[in-house]
Amino acid sequence: MSISVQELTQTPAASQSIVQSVPVGPAALLVDHATKRFKVDRRKPPVVAVDDVSIRIERGEIYGLLGANGSGKSTFIRLVSGLLTLDAGRVEVFGHDLVREEMAVKRLINRVSVDAAFFKKLSPAENLSFAARLYGLDTREAHRKAVAIMARLGIGEKRMSRPVEQMSRGMQQKVAIARAILTSPMLLLLDEPTTGLDPRSKLDVQAFVEELRADHDTTIVLTTHDLAEAERLCGRIGILAGGRLTAEETPECLKSRVAFEYGLPPTLESAFMQYTGRSLDDDIEEGEAEPAD
């Protein structure tokens, strides 16, 4: 069965599938001098997880956010999601201020995180029905749509009624993506959505994101450790290091810049190492800066 993303989403396809050269209307996401600090130890100064970051993302754009573990990527996503309060700065989603118009912003966004969080005893259908009701969707229509999205991601309808805990990690992540797409978000935050997936599942998810770019006007912010994935999917890439935005270009510009300015091989890995000041191996070793309970 061949189902396009356009059929799965409520809004019609937009003509601007890639970054618009001339911004029209409010930015899909405007982050203006955002800062977030965490107090992890009373005797020590607070950790600055996001440090004076400003980003403007236009409608229909796929924006990649790269950085080492603890660089502030997930904190940035949580700030934009409204799951953390800002210490300074502001965030606007399609012209709506995140603090003053919280409900309006919530209706426009959704998020997929690295760990597919569900009530694991419940089935995908039950979990998605819960999400649909929270977002005020008609549950029958939502079910039909969920089945179509899941089919597109390679999960048959019969799997919809079995507990999520019986599904593989890759399948669970696909259900998480379906949950986010189900609500037709204008701004989709993908926080390492393919981390830990097998190559086939990873390709499925990447192809789906590409379809979203081609057929639908969802704006996507993608954080990833997979540089090939970032290069394949993202129109622009921002690199975070120590909570600061150290570079922001198209993948091609980033590669050219490191080759021209630093004499490094023209690869995204070179750019990553140059602008984070570390290697990918370092990245895997370290944890996030946010405090645990």
Partner: peptide, 17 residues
């Protein structure tokens, strides 16, 4: 507590509810 153990709390808190 349930939502925190399952990890769904952030999703519930993100919903327009």
């Amino acid at each position: 507590t349930w939502e925190r153990w399952e990890g769904t709390l952030e999703y519930t808190m993100m919903a327009p509810v």
